[in-house]
Nucleic acid binder design. Structure first.
Lengths: 215, 215
DNA sequence: GTCTATAGCCAGATAGAC
DNA sequence: GTCTATCTGGCTATAGAC
């Protein structure tokens, strides 16, 4: 029994290595450009071996996307534990975290409207359930922040939700990183500012001057 | 001579039809997913005929992208003619226009960092010159708006420039359009609001209440 | 479960008749 | 310049030995 458990551990470790490679390649090139040969080469195994673990390229990407959502949920639940923080701060913390993940090269880009990946994901219950769960947690914070006057009450919550998802994959991050002009922290603070306070940059609390815009 | 001119007109018309198809397909599926067969089928000619007009898929897309930039430049120059408008209004007008183009299904998505299209575009002088020209016009308005206090002076102008480019291809637009919950005009106004005033939605002029956020 | 080798398919690009 | 037919290469996925 111990031997089987050990073998299973090795198996898990290999699958985890595969998923890490897939995750990185999905972030770097996207599903359509990424090839299974690249994944195999990156992991250091033969392509045929990959297909013993996963039945298709779509499933491979799907499991990697699920793992990303699981990490997001883990982060969200850790934030939820600190229930004293105002909702707007929770949302900013989430946005900051997604940007950090993207700067680390581990945030897959949103599956474009027409990608073959999208069709397979919407039919993937494990994926959709997690996506729904993430959306519900964020949605709760969004409406709470609206009630508190920290988010624009004139905007439908879904619009804010979609915007937060989109900013997690914002190409501006990659361009700024590639320009090499700013530190990772500065990039994140600037994009957080444009996301929540806009290009106009009116600080969130009108009474106290210049806090959110230029830290 | 008249006959040659007529033939040239037909040629131009055909090439324009090709570019329109490419433009639409680039917006719909992106460069990597779009196939030359699709383009040929959409135009209604044989694939080999396409290659009499253009030497490669990359060139095909490049010429289509140049046409998009030419249209943008045309719009920008029309705006410049109205020099009385404050810079911030010029920028909002541009952003509104790019969103209209995107809703019309005619805005190609930004070539992703790794696409084979990107490499060919950076080596395309006709494309890069136009991109530079667009950037300079927008850059002038951005710094003017910063001096006028209408844009956050703490943000580098390039960050604003990249953000405006990214918002022209913002996937949030497509998602909202697909949801069918809002009119095109409402979608554009909401995204303009989140772009310039952020999710917090503090109006641009603190003294006059609720003007930009919820018109 | 790992490998090498290959099937099967579809893409971009070309040949050659008209 | 347009077409049909084809080449060439790269991709997903599988066969079959070990």
């Amino acid at each position: 029994m111990a031997k089987i458990s050990f073998r299973e551990q090795v198996l898990r470790a290999r699958e985890d290595a595969i998923l890490s490679s897939v995750n990185r390649l999905l972030a770097e090139k996207g599903f359509d450009v990424m090839t299974v040969d690249e994944v195999a080469a990156d992991v250091g195994i033969a392509k045929a071996s990959l297909y013993k673990h996963f039945t298709s390229k779509e499933e491979l990407a799907g499991v990697a996307m699920i793992r990303v959502l699981d990490r997001a949920l883990e982060h969200l639940r850790a934030l939820q534990a600190d229930s004293a923080r105002p909702a707007i701060e929770q949302l900013k913390a989430v946005a900051r975290w997604t940007m950090q993940v993207q700067l680390a090269g581990e945030m897959p880009s949103l599956p474009s409207q027409n990608s073959s990946l999208r069709a397979s994901l919407v039919g993937n219950r494990d994926y959709m359930n997690r996506l729904l769960e993430v959306s519900e947690i964020l949605g709760g914070w969004i409406t709470a922040a609206q009630r508190a006057g920290d988010l624009n009450p004139a905007l439908p919550p879904e619009v804010m939700l979609y915007t937060l998802f989109a900013r997690a994959c914002d190409p501006v991050l990659g361009v700024l990183k590639a320009s090499g002009q700013h530190s990772d922290e500065r990039i994140i603070e600037m994009l957080l500012s444009t996301c929540f306070d806009g290009l106009a940059g009116r600080p969130a609390a009108p009474a106290r001057a210049g806090e959110a815009a230029n830290r």
